[in-house]
Design a protein around this nucleic acid. Structure first.
Lengths: 191, 191
DNA sequence: GTCTATAATGCGATAGAC
DNA sequence: GTCTATCGCATTATAGAC
């Protein structure tokens, strides 16, 4: 299966604006702290209009996060196509850095928000993708310490993304620095 | 002023149980996703009993987080007493690692939860402490890249704490590894 | 300190017109 | 696709008895 995981949604222009508004609010107030009324106001419509796009709030959250996870799945797929764990890890790392710099807030919400995390635990595919990504970065024979390093790295990426102190850094600079940081931290000469 | 910042609360046994229950739920569902009813049920009392301890939900959240911030303030204070930024950074780092391994979930909530973050932004003292800690770790003449590293490090600490994959690691092992990791990453020491 | 009871508000979600 | 209007329910918070 070489095709990208799935593309269920036509992603109409209206839906895109809905996703963007919801994500902005999710990042600032959290998913639980964001009501459908707030989202509707941000878009400039009523709650009922939002419900035309998604039957429940949970489905809206999934709709916001899903495109991100599709891209993560694509990264994992391309990394698996490489040969040797080092080349795989390098591909996973650079793909991941490219992605999160591109979507910034989406990564923060998907990784840290409790509601988003719980929803991902329910959908088995999404859990599998995250597990494979960790496996690619950790390498074939990872022990507890190595797993701590990977968990540390993936969580650390949200720091520069969420912090307003470093939010002004241009995409290119941030991408270059995070990639270098990841190489040193995860791919550097080890034992 | 060498005394610890403040100790307003007598911290009665009842309050301690309230804090522990609230923190457990905050970590799992987020602050917004945790109702006072859930907290009351967890403790085994009614909502009204909770309201006897705190007038509002926000005050309860502050009550849970405040002891943590007092300890961070203490770390900053002791680090400032050292001479030379390297000794200061070392003191701040080791103090911080000790603290977060001790309180684990509290660090995750205080750093990542939107409600907790917003509440800290309102109380100026708490913002100052966090800023000073970052300054201690970043060093005297920090540029954007160095600030990214510090933001990365502080955010990265939540990874091993929140991840169930690495949650079973004993305190001593986790503390030793995070301290070593921090020294390598921020202080540039070889193992 | 804890309880019952309740007020006031906002929430997610639905029905049906346009 | 968007609207108005509404239902049922959970929420924060308060009042007052024990």
């Amino acid at each position: 299966m070489t095709t990208a995981a799935r593309e269920e949604r036509p992603a109409s222009a209206g839906r895109e604006r809905l996703h963007a508004a919801a994500l902005r609010l999710f990042a600032e107030h959290g998913v639980s702290g964001t009501s459908l009324q707030m989202i509707a106001d941000e878009v400039g419509v009523t709650k009922a209009a939002v419900y035309h796009h998604y039957k429940t709030k949970d489905e809206l959250v999934v709709g916001v996060i899903d495109p991100f996870l599709d891209r993560v799945a694509g990264i994992v797929e391309r990394a698996h196509a490489r040969r040797g764990w080092r080349a795989q890890a390098e591909a996973a790392l650079s793909g991941l850095v490219d992605l999160i710099v591109d979507v910034r807030r989406l990564y923060v919400v998907a990784v840290t928000d409790p509601v988003a995390v719980h929803l991902q635990e329910q959908h088995p595919r999404l859990r599998v993708v995250a597990g494979e990504l960790r496996g690619l970065l950790a390498g074939p024979d990872a022990d507890d310490e190595r797993r701590i390093d990977v968990a540390f790295f993936l969580a650390g990426l949200v720091g520069p993304l969420g912090d307003p102190q470093t939010f002004h850094v241009p995409d290119e600079d941030l991408r270059a620095h995070l990639l270098d940081l990841g190489r040193r931290f995860l791919l550097g000469r080890r034992r």
